[in-house]
Design a protein around this nucleic acid. Structure first.
Lengths: 216, 216
DNA sequence: ACGCTATTTATACACTTGCATAACAACGCC
DNA sequence: GGCGTTGTTATGCAAGTGTATAAATAGCGT
C-alpha cells in the first residue's frame, strides 16, 4: 500500500552557484521559447530544480528577470571594453577592434537579442527599465566619444566637441542597427561582413584615409 | 425575483470594420501594456466587445497577433516609401528626404517602438514572425539599394554591386539604430538632430561632396 | 411586420501562471 | 553519530489564460 512517491534526491549548492544556474536557465528558456516561455516552472526544470526554489533565491520572478538582464548587459559591455584594452595599438585600430567586438559573436547572439527585445519593449512603460537603458546607453556613448576624440587627434583633425558627439551618436546607431540585423538574420551576412561594413562606414564618417596609411 | 442581469446591448458591424477594430485594439493594448498585456479580454474590452467575439473573426489569438504585426509593418514601410515619391528631386535629395522621414515623427514614436519591440522579440523563435520581418527588411533594403545606386550614378561614381549592397546594409543599420534611440529617448536629442546626423553619415559614407554643390 | 441567420453575448472549462506554505532531507557542527 | 539549520521538494491555491459552446438578439430580405 505504500504508493507514496519517493521524494526526489537533491544536492545543496552554494548560493552564488545556484543563482547563476537559475540565471543561465532563464537565458536558455528565453532563447528557446521567448520571454513569455520563461515561466518559473520552465526555468526550474531547465536548472534541474523545482519551481519553489526560485523563490528562495529571488523574491519574485521579476527580480530574476532583471538579474538576468543585468547579467547580459554586463557581459556585453565587458566584451566591448575588452577590445578597448589594447593599449599598445593605435586609436584607429582600437576603434576598429571595438566595432568588431560589438558585431561578432558572442555579442551577436539570438539569445541575447531575444532577452534584450523583451526588456526594451517594456522600457516604454516601465520607468525603472527606461532609466537603466538610459544609463547604459549614455555610458556606452561616452566611451565611444572618448575613443572618437582620440582617433581624430591622432589623425590631426580638429575635434570639435559637437562634432565628436554627433560622431559618437552615429557610430552608436550603426552598431545598434547592425547588431540587431546580425542577431535576427545572421544567415543573411557573411561571417565578418557586418563588422567590415561597420568599420568602413565609421572610417568614412571620420574621413580617415581610405587604406593602410598607418606609416606615411 | 428577476435578478437575471440584463443582456448587454450591441450593434452589428461590417466584417472588415470589426476586424480592423480588433486589430487596432490589439495595437493599443500592446503599446500600453506590452505584448503580455494583450490578452483576449483586454483586447475585447478595448474594442468595446466581449472576448468571445475575437474567435468569431480570428481562428485563434495567434492569428490576430500576426494580422496586427502585418498591419504595423505595412504602415511603417508605407510611411517610408512616401518620402521616395518626390520624383522631380535629385537622387541625393531624395535619399536625404528618405533618411529624414525615417528619423522624425511620426515614424519616431514611442508607441510604434513598443509594438515593434514586442513583436520582434518573438521573431527569434516564431518562424511566422521571423519570415514577416525578413520580407519587410529585405524589401526596405532593396529600396535603399536602388536609391544608393541612383545617387552614385548621379555622382559619376562606379557603382560596384557588392559595394552598393554594403552601403544599403550600412544605411539601413544607421536608420534602425538611430530610430531606436530616438524612440526610446527623444529628449536626449534636438528635434531634427538625429536626421541631421544620419544624413551627414550617409553622405560621408557615399563620399559625396561635403556641402551644397548641387550646381557647379 | 415578421421570421432567418449570422453576429454577438454569456457562461463554462481545462489549463497555466506566480506565489505561499509545510514537510522533508542534505550537510556542517559539536 | 545525533542534531539543528536551511536549502530543497511537494502540494495547494487563487487568479488569469485561451478556447469551446449555447443562448440571445440585431438587422436584413421579404
Amino acid at each position: 500500500m505504500n504508493d507514496a512517491p519517493p521524494r526526489r534526491k537533491f544536492r545543496r549548492e552554494g548560493e552564488e552557484r545556484r543563482r547563476q544556474d537559475l540565471i543561465e536557465a532563464t537565458l536558455d528558456c528565453v532563447a528557446e521559447y521567448g520571454l513569455e516561455g520563461a515561466t518559473v516552472r520552465a526555468i526550474a526544470r531547465r536548472a534541474g530544480v523545482t519551481a519553489g526554489l526560485i523563490r528562495h533565491y529571488f523574491p519574485n520572478k521579476e527580480e530574476l528577470l532583471q538579474a538576468t538582464y543585468a547579467t547580459i548587459v554586463g557581459r556585453m559591455t565587458e566584451q566591448a571594453k575588452a577590445a578597448l584594452a589594447m593599449d599598445n595599438a593605435s586609436p584607429r585600430r582600437r576603434l576598429a577592434a571595438f566595432v568588431e567586438a560589438n558585431l561578432t559573436p558572442p555579442v551577436i547572439d539570438a539569445r541575447i537579442f531575444s532577452l534584450w527585445a523583451g526588456f526594451i519593449g517594456r522600457a516604454t512603460h516601465d520607468p525603472a527599465l527606461a532609466a537603466a537603458h538610459r544609463v547604459g546607453y549614455l555610458g556606452f556613448r561616452d566611451e565611444l566619444e572618448a575613443l572618437v576624440a582620440e582617433v581624430l587627434a591622432a589623425e590631426d583633425q580638429v575635434a570639435d566637441k559637437a562634432q565628436t558627439r554627433a560622431h559618437a551618436i552615429a557610430i552608436n546607431g550603426i552598431l545598434d542597427g547592425l547588431w540587431i540585423e546580425g542577431c535576427l538574420a545572421d544567415d543573411l551576412f557573411g561571417p565578418r561582413e557586418l563588422a567590415g561594413i561597420a568599420i568602413s562606414t565609421v572610417e568614412a564618417l571620420l574621413r580617415l584615409k581610405p587604406e593602410r596609411e598607418e606609416t606615411p
